[in-house]
Simulated assay, not measured.
Amino acid sequence: MADRPYGLLAEFDSPEALLAAARKTREAGYRALDAFTPFPVEGLARTLRLPRPKISWVGLFGGLAGGTFALLMQSYISFDFPLNVGGRPVYALSAFAVVTFELTILFSALSMIVVMLWQNGLPRLNFPLFAARRFHLASKDRFFLCVESRDAAFDEQVTASFLKGLGAISVELVPS
C-alpha cells in the first residue's frame, strides 16, 4: 500500500502534556506509539511500554568471547612455538593478562556498537517523520507523539480528532 501514510504526528508544548496524552492514547487502545522530545521525560518510556534493551547482555557475551579468543590464541601460539625463557612455564597465564584484557574490552565494545546500530535500524538516511513540517522543533522546545498507521486502532479522521481533543497544538498527517 503505497498510499498509506506513516501516521499522525501530534505536537505538544510541555512534557506534562505529552505524558498525559501518551497515557490517554495508550488507554484508548493505540499500541504503535512513539514520542520525540528534546530531553528525556520521566515515565514516558514506561507509558509507551518500550522494550528494555538487551545491550548489556550483548556486552557481556562479547567480552566473554573476546577473553576466550585471546586466551585460546595465546595458548595456541605458546603450544605451536614454545619458548623456554628463564625456566618460565610455556602457559604463563599472567603473561596473557594484558592481551586478554584488551581483547575482552574490544570485543565487548564492538559487539555493543554493532547491536545498538542494528536495534536502532541504522544506518537509515531518511525517516518519514523528517518530512513533517514542524518536526525539527523536537530538538528545540516541542514534544511530539506519533501514532503510526500500522496500529490496528488507527483511523485517520478519528485518530486526528482524538489527538486534537487531548490538547495537541497541531496534528499532522505524515506521508510514508
Rank of each mutant, 00 (worst) to 15 (best):
M1S: 14
A2L: 14
G7H: 03
G7L: 05
L9Y: 01
A10E: 02
A10L: 01
F12V: 06
F12C: 06
D13V: 02
P15H: 08
A17D: 04
L18W: 01
A21K: 06
A21N: 13
A21S: 15
A22C: 01
T25W: 02
E27Q: 08
G29W: 03
Y30A: 03
D34M: 03
A35P: 01
T37M: 03
P38N: 05
P38D: 06
P40H: 09
V41Q: 05
V41W: 00
E42A: 12
G43W: 00
A45K: 14
R46D: 06
T47S: 03
L48E: 06
L48Q: 07
L48D: 04
P51T: 11
P51S: 08
R52P: 11
K54W: 14
K54P: 08
I55T: 15
I55H: 11
W57H: 10
G62E: 09
G63I: 12
G63A: 15
G63F: 10
G66C: 04
A70I: 14
L72Q: 06
L72W: 03
Q74V: 05
I77M: 13
S78N: 11
F79I: 06
D80K: 03
D80L: 02
P82C: 05
L83E: 07
N84M: 10
G86M: 02
R88W: 00
P89R: 13
L93H: 13
L93F: 15
L93K: 07
L93S: 14
E102M: 08
E102N: 13
F107A: 11
S108H: 10
A109E: 12
A109C: 15
L110S: 15
M112H: 09
M112L: 10
I113A: 15
Q119G: 07
Q119D: 14
R124L: 11
L125N: 12
N126E: 15
L129E: 15
A131Q: 13
A132G: 12
A132E: 07
A132H: 05
A132K: 02
R133T: 09
R133W: 00
R134K: 11
H136C: 00
L137K: 10
A138R: 09
S139C: 00
S139Q: 07
K140Q: 12
D141K: 09
D141G: 15
F143R: 13
F144H: 08
F144W: 02
L145K: 08
C146A: 13
C146W: 00
V147A: 04
V147H: 02
A152F: 00
A153G: 03
F154M: 12
S161T: 07
F162K: 02
L163G: 03
L166P: 05
L166Y: 09
S176T: 11
S176A: 15
S176V: 03
